[in-house]
Design a protein around this nucleic acid. Structure first.
Length: 262
DNA sequence: ATGCCTCAGCTCCTGAGA
């Protein structure tokens, strides 16, 4: 089962790239589930016909201008849940569904802006709620994947200049403590199960030729539950879409999991 | 230096992203 996460920074702009990318995956085994973030579309504007026309099913949950998430799948999406139950939120950040027995949670974590901001306080509250939600979900779904734009770097390897960026947004101890709390639930960072090139990132600023100079962050992650961790065959960052014309500032992260029954 | 890009929107500037 191949799954991927991609913050597209406007699906309105990036839909052709998403469809092309899904098509291109077919060579190496088709994508089973793709989680999108920052679709920036209300549900009435979601390009459902185009996605269904490409042979996929889709669940989505969005809003105008900001946020918005979707799950694109080659298989039926069961028990779709929007956002975090019990956590009152006016932002569309999380979408969950069960695909072939695997609970898939696609999430757009809050940015947080700056460690001393109100948005950071919201980020902390949201992370607390997400932790409870994942903990609860694991009880009924031991096979679980939590993937998306975490807006958190796990350690210095995920940061192009860890000295200059120490303690800044995405790199604070407080954010990383929440990341660790997710790992403490038994979740595993699929990317670090394998040897990876140094300076592997999933996001580069649009400014100052950051991609060309590889000044990036690894903030898009795929965490898999303990029950799945031994079945992961590979986890890679696909930098190709970042080289497109009008690219998203994020690029996809892909995981391949060998399910015994699928 | 809070801008450098990019996107959306009550669009020719502003807010937000990360």
């Amino acid at each position: 089962m191949k799954l991927a996460t991609w913050n597209v920074n406007s699906l309105n702009v990036r839909l052709p790239q998403v469809l092309d990318w899904l098509q291109a995956q077919a060579d190496s085994g088709p994508m089973d589930v793709l989680a999108l973030q920052e679709t920036k579309l209300t549900d009435d504007k979601f390009p459902r016909p185009e996605i269904e026309g490409s042979g996929h099913q889709v669940a989505y949950f969005g809003q105008k201008t900001y946020n918005g998430v979707a799950l694109i799948s080659r298989h039926p999406l069961h028990d779709v849940v929007h956002n975090i139950p019990g956590f009152d939120d006016d932002m569309a950040r999380v979408i969950s569904a069960t695909v072939q027995g695997v609970r898939v949670i696609g999430a757009y974590f809050p940015n947080g802006q700056a460690p001393d901001s109100d948005k950071f306080v919201y980020k902390m509250r949201w992370l607390e709620a997400l932790h409870s939600y994942v903990q609860h979900s694991l009880q009924s779904h031991p096979q679980l994947v939590l993937m998306g734009d975490y807006n958190i770097t796990w350690d210095d390897r995920d940061v192009w200049d860890p000295v200059a960026l120490a303690g800044t947004i995405h790199c604070t101890d407080a954010e990383r403590a929440h990341f660790k709390a997710l790992l403490d639930l038994g979740l595993v960072d699929a990317f670090r199960l394998f040897d990876q090139a140094e300076k592997s990132y999933s996001w580069w600023d649009y400014r100052e030729f950051a991609f060309r100079r590889n000044r990036g962050l690894r903030i898009d992650h795929i965490l898999v539950s303990q029950a799945l961790s031994g079945l992961v065959q590979s986890c890679t960052i696909d930098k190709a879409p970042r080289k497109n014309e009008r690219p998203s500032d994020h690029t996809p992260v892909v995981v391949d999991i060998e399910l015994p029954h699928a």
